[in-house]
Amino acid sequence: MPGALAGLKVIEMVGLGPAPLCAMLLADHGAEVIRIDRPGAAGALGLPPQYDVAARGRRSLAIDLRKPGAVDAVLDLVARADVLIEGFRPGVMERLGLGPDVCLARQPRLVYGRMTGWGQSGPLAHAAGHDINYIALSGALQAIGRAGEAPVPPLNYVGDYGGGAMLLAFGVLAALYEAQRSGRGQVVDAAMTDGAALLSAMFYGLKAAGAWRNERGTNLLDSGAHFYDTYRCADGKYVAVGAIEPQFHAELLARLGLDAAEFKRPLDPAQWPQYKARLAAVFATRSRDAWCAVLEGSDACFAPVLDWDEAPRHPHNVARGTFVEIGGVVQPAPAPRFSRSEAPTPAAPVAAGHDSEAVLRGWGIDAQRIAALRDAGAI
């Protein structure tokens, strides 16, 4: 199957973090994504290309934009593209001669996706930063962690990926849908501060209603409640419990062999510390896998906490094909699933410049210009 986005042509100006993941999502579902790399560029974090999983499914054109004819060649590719994605600080693409005004002049239907931390405007727009800084400004980081402890960075899921890559992918596809009606492209300004704030919508509502406190580890979903937390087992491994609703809470207690009378006020925060201590004592009596035999698959809202090696081997993930092996590297499979437009298995990531001449030929650049770019040291 060709994938739901087959026929979509995307140019990715290679950067770090969220923009590559957004491009991966598009490529996973059939879009033809061309990575514009720097000649000789190393893979993410300096690792060999096969480990740069977020670069999978794309061909790479390595071109030195400082050399004669290079920017014009990229603009010729832009003229044939539907989408351009870039993740540089505001103004960088303009200085390269590839800003949105220039690109939209060449391709009026182009969707120009811009991914930054702070956004294209605002007093912090030109400052350096990373995921942890962007989610701190949005209010999200303050909420993550245990009571009495410092905020805990949730890897780079909330800023780079949830509030960044996913937001950019949504914005690009929304702009493409609008372009079908208007015939005009536009710029998508996706900022991780905006995205992380957007992911926090429910919590801002709860806070306004007086149902959420600023103090970490004291609320329903932040490890405050006994029925929504992780517990250490006898073997040092952990389980995760999320039995919020009354019927699920009752199921959890019954399967743990606990008397519901001990937990009369499950929604009373004042009772949570003692209830949590009771559950912790029970879970500490058996190994994680022993508790799986009792609880997994039930309505107790239970799961084992798996590590990176265990997760791909779990029977549920195996049955759904949640993970695949590409180029010897186990990694998540494309998602979501479609009933007809099944995503193909992505190709392994390639080194910068692996496909330079093939990309140029395939996108309509003639042999004489390719030779000129080669002679100029641009490719």
Rank of each mutant, 00 (worst) to 15 (best):
N156W: 00
E342F: 09
D82R: 12
P332C: 11
K207V: 03
A254S: 06
A240L: 12
E251I: 03
D268A: 07
A150M: 02
A201T: 15
Q271S: 15
G183W: 02
C292M: 07
G97E: 15
T322F: 05
E262L: 08
W308T: 13
L167F: 05
R369C: 08
A125D: 02
L220C: 10
L221F: 13
V188C: 13
V152Q: 03
I34S: 07
L306R: 08
I63W: 13
L176K: 01
M192D: 12
H130L: 12
R146K: 08
V359D: 14
E12K: 07
G119C: 09
H29Q: 06
A290D: 07
Y204T: 14
D375G: 08
N156R: 03
S339R: 00
H314R: 08
L220A: 11
V305H: 02
Q142K: 08
R288G: 05
V53D: 03
K276Q: 06
R35A: 14
A191N: 12
R255P: 04
P273V: 08
D194C: 11
L220F: 13
D160G: 07
V152I: 04
A62H: 11
S341P: 05
V324H: 01
S339D: 14
W363N: 11
A55V: 04
R278K: 10
G328V: 06
S60C: 14
L360A: 15
S138D: 08
A79E: 10
R89A: 05
C292P: 01
A147D: 04
L84I: 13
A175N: 05
T345K: 13
R288E: 00
A42D: 05
Y177E: 00
A44N: 12
E215S: 02
